[in-house]
Write a protein that binds this DNA or RNA. Structure first.
Lengths: 211, 211
DNA sequence: CGTTATCCATACACTTTTGAATGTAAAAAT
DNA sequence: ATTTTTACATTCAAAAGTGTATGGATAACG
């Protein structure tokens, strides 16, 4: 086989990861062999074993293309006036997250992580989910604590419970949407649920139209 | 091998299913072979292939031991005074569901279904999750509609949105707890989140202690 | 009491997948 | 210009898993 240039080699690596996503979504991680991935990318297993140590290594490389921690979603907003409006910061960060998730690559990889793989090799998707979950909940707690101190939460609502509720709702919505993303848009549905929930939580809910 | 009595044969069948749960939890469905299941049950693959057609058949048999639709959780309450208190019906049904889930077998099988298996054979866990989800959401919608008609919901809260929010929160809580059930009790945490959420949703929230 | 169907172990053939070894033509380094 | 890596394809050996066929002891049945 003729040697490729550095750029070409990097491109084939990406091609392999794309093919892996395809196959993982279609048949699950465990049920797709490295040969199937290579064939779907128009190559052979030689290419796979050149770029990746094994299946787990390829899987990890695939995940590293889509990291998005909650705090980064907040930072992307870059709005200093949000310091006095923590609930609005949460809202915008979530909406920003929804927008990210509608990008095919993000959606697909997260779908694989949550719904199309189980523990294998040295990688544990459940541990990753726990990390994501606790990190999100911690960030939410920070903002709800601020909201509590600023008197923007309803008095009957403890900040930590608010954070847990919001975390659970987002996770549930996330899971549900990933299971059938073609049936609705998470930007629209998510925004509606999010706005309603935040309206229920804050001290003086603005008049939301019942429709 | 000597033939067993009918009762003994039925017992070995249960033993095999128990062993399958163990191995599925420990190593995932795809990564456990029928031989590993048989050995863990103190038998050989002959027993497995006698009682089940193949791995998918065994998997389905395992699932059939734990069905619990939301409507059944309501029926188990058997309280006719609940007709005028739909939100209380939802609350009790959820709490009843939490109690069910703390039974080891229920918890383990649902954990397998949600976190330790991917599509294989002719069974599709995602389709099952969609069924569970839509069924739960439909039941919730029924009760929130009643609550709406009875004027027990806050005016800014549309019943269908309320059902979706509640469904998402329950699903998220469910997923999170199944990932680390040893770190907290879903009966306690679930009840707290549930009560708070329902208090936020109903028209005249009772004074909840901030603590 | 004799026959048969059951319950499970054992053995065998087959497929799938993996990891490593080898080959090779061209890009890069010297 | 020569040498050395690189970027794969091809081939090979080994392991693991599956489904089936067969055997054997005995419970169940008439």
């Amino acid at each position: 086989m003729a040697r490729k240039t550095k750029a070409e080699a990097a491109a084939t690596r990406e091609t392999l990861l794309d093919a892996a996503e395809d196959m993982f979504i279609a048949h699950g991680v465990a049920r797709t062999s490295l040969d199937q991935i290579a064939r779907h990318a128009g190559m052979t297993r030689g290419a796979v074993y050149w770029h990746f140590k094994n299946k787990a290594d390829l899987f990890q490389a695939m995940l590293q293309r889509v990291r998005l921690p909650f705090e980064d979603l907040v930072k992307e907003l870059d709005d200093t006036t949000l310091d006095q409006k923590p609930l609005e910061a949460v809202r915008l960060a979530c909406i920003n997250g929804f927008a990210h998730l509608e990008q095919p690559r993000y959606r697909r990889v997260h779908s694989i992580l949550l719904h199309h793989c189980e523990t294998f090799g040295d990688i544990d998707p459940l541990a990753m989910q726990n990390e994501m979950s606790s990190e999100t909940c911690g960030a939410l707690l920070k903002y709800f604590n601020m909201a509590g101190k600023l008197g923007q939460l309803r008095p009957c609502l403890a900040p930590d419970v608010a954070a847990q509720i919001m975390q659970a709702m987002l996770a549930g919505l996330f899971h549900d949407w990933l299971r059938n993303h073609e049936s609705y848009s998470i930007r629209r549905e998510g925004a509606q649920l999010l706005d309603t929930q935040l309206a229920l939580m804050q001290r003086t809910p603005p008049p939301l139209t019942y429709r």
